[in-house]
């Protein structure tokens, strides 16, 4: 056991430096970016780690780069920077909303994209379902070099990743599509959403759904695609009520989590409403 005042901090100067220090420390070290999750470890009754590797000084992890075919988001981009950086990209609207409404303003100013995806205990992360819907890939650096993998794959394996693994950036493909992010905190704002539905849709000229991805967050311990609903809505018009009805029919696929603030049953019960709102937003933003 390490007390908080005994923990050490290494301020990494490069991705290679961070990977090397993390690899050498084995399981004793973790990366630290905005720190808003890690600084609450004791409140979650989680142990303090002997070593933290600060990523905030690494230039390679910063910046939102918008290219013709994709947007590259550095792992240390904050929620606030992401929301600002995506302004004006219609297909990124859902992701911008996720980044711009998560947590509170002061937390959004420091909490990062990489931290949001790497915090495996954080079921209510807003960016995870939004990036799933956006079909994002994650570039992970490690002692064996850099690999790129789909976000779903990263989320599924992040707890087993080798020491030294580090998200470098997130790559979001661009395309002729629109997106929406609907979240349900119990108050108007300021608490973690009990359920999140993110959608990204490409619409055919006839107004029907050509391609649809739905990310669901906070319902299960890990954000996931809602493929059953995606398939059910394929080639259908953007009809909010019909989508909500379909959502009700396919809500049985979830193994929801009970929490202090809401039961698993409630999280699933509200999904059709969130789907309806998401489809309404998509229809409105076309």
């Amino acid at each position: 056991m390490v007390a908080a005042h005994e923990a050490r901090l290494h301020v990494a100067t490069s991705v290679d430096d961070a990977v090397a220090v993390l690899t050498e420390a084995g399981g004793d070290a973790v990366p630290m970016a905005g720190a808003t999750w890690l600084m609450r470890a004791e409140l979650r009754d989680e142990p303090i780690r002997p070593l933290y590797v600060a990523l905030g000084r690494i230039e390679a992890l910063k910046g939102v780069e918008i290219a013709a075919d994709a947007v590259s988001i550095g792992a240390c981009v904050t929620h606030a920077e992401l929301a600002g950086g995506l302004a004006g990209l219609p297909e990124m609207r859902g992701l911008a909303q996720a980044a711009g409404h998560a947590a509170t303003p002061a937390v959004r100013a420091v909490a990062t994209v990489g931290g949001n995806l790497a915090a495996s205990g954080f079921a209510a992360a807003d960016l995870a379902p939004a990036l799933l819907a956006a079909d994002a890939e994650v570039e992970v650096a490690g002692s064996n070099g850099t690999e790129r993998l789909p976000l779903a794959g990263y989320l599924a394996t992040r707890d087993q990743a080798a020491a030294g693994s580090l998200i470098v950036r997130v790559i979001v493909p661009r395309g002729d599509c629109v997106s929406a992010h609907t979240r349900l905190p119990l108050r108007v704002a300021g608490d973690y959403p009990v359920a999140i539905v993110s959608m990204n849709v490409a619409v055919s000229p006839d107004g029907t759904i050509a391609d649809l991805r739905i990310g669901v967050g906070s319902v299960e311990p890990v954000a996931a695609r809602w493929t059953a609903l995606e398939e059910a809505l394929a080639s259908q018009p953007l009809d909010p009520e019909a989508a909500a009805t379909a959502a009700r029919e396919h809500a049985g696929v979830f193994a929801p989590r009970d929490g202090v603030e809401a039961s698993g049953a409630y999280r699933v019960r509200v999904l059709p409403a969130l789907v309806r709102r998401a489809i309404e937003a998509l229809a409105a933003s076309r």
Partner: peptide, 24 residues
Amino acid sequence: ITIDAQGRIRQQGFETYHVPLAPD
């Protein structure tokens, strides 16, 4: 405030104990 079967108050902070905020 809810109390579990072991007599422990489940809300241990403001993450789960929700007081009204300005938008409410």
